[in-house]
Write a protein that binds this DNA or RNA. Structure first.
Lengths: 137, 137
DNA sequence: TATAATGTCTCTAGCGACTATAGCTTCAAG
DNA sequence: CTTGAAGCTATAGTCGCTAGAGACATTATA
């Protein structure tokens, strides 16, 4: 049996976050000690690791909830899990594209400024005047 | 003089967002009509365009507030504006890197699953077992 | 000019995924 | 037995909006 601090250390999920996950219904309310403190089993530790991993990969709480539900029924088709992963993958790819466009615009703006005072600063001029942009965003 | 809806149309910033910016101190409270509705001048429209552009580039409200303050003093050195742009650029680049690592991890997970049922699903296995990862995240 | 339609007003609450704080109780080590 | 760390609940704050309610203002049409 582990205390909340122990599973926090082992999984890397912060203590208040664990309680938050419990509140959100991602993990069940665990047993309690005589003094009303949470006591977790290995199974619950594993679940929390699963959640941590999925969160690190950027999956939303809702998506993770779905995966947990799927995982609880090992004989259902796994198309659901596949779909969740692929949808998330698509959104990650989209986000990367967006950020890359921003990166090029921003680096152009940031490196173009050789002025000494704000009056002539390219950063501020570029932000004020959309026509200085190279693509539309 | 423009109504809030008119500057919303011209800048692409939604009406409630304009009021929110006013509340946050990004823009000053404008004049009011006899019936207590906001009335904006061209100058305020330009400022809002500036803000919109900076937000589209991902700058935070705080960073934009700093830029506006800088812009109000045209004879100060523009190192501040440069710093803000470059800091943001660095954080965008970092974020892109992170997302690219996620993308590769996630695409590996998503395309490896050929199982029919959850019990054998690679998506769920990979999320449960960190050792299946190719790099650490 | 009357009325209808649209726009605007303030205020409050909600989103997602936590994080922080306050004031208390319990636990483990010395 | 004392002390200090860890845990408890409950509430509020973060960011950048967005949505809704219910009232008032303005504009367009009949």
């Amino acid at each position: 049996m582990f205390s909340i601090g122990q599973i926090s250390n082992r999984t890397g999920v912060k203590v208040p976050t664990i309680r938050y996950y419990e509140q959100m219904g991602l993990i069940d309310a665990p047993e309690r000690s005589e003094g009303n403190q949470r006591r977790y089993s290995k199974k619950e530790l594993d679940l929390l690791s699963f959640i941590k991993h999925a969160r690190d990969l950027g999956l939303s709480i809702d998506a993770i909830r779905d995966l947990i539900r799927l995982n609880a029924h090992p004989d259902t088709p796994c198309a659901g899990a596949d779909r969740i992963a692929n949808e998330h993958l698509a959104s990650v790819r989209l986000r990367i594209q967006q950020l890359q466009r921003l990166e090029s615009e921003l680096s152009r703006i940031a490196k173009s400024c050789k002025a000494g005072v704000v009056k002539d600063c390219y950063v501020i001029r570029a932000l004020s005047d959309h026509s200085l942009c190279q693509d539309d965003h």
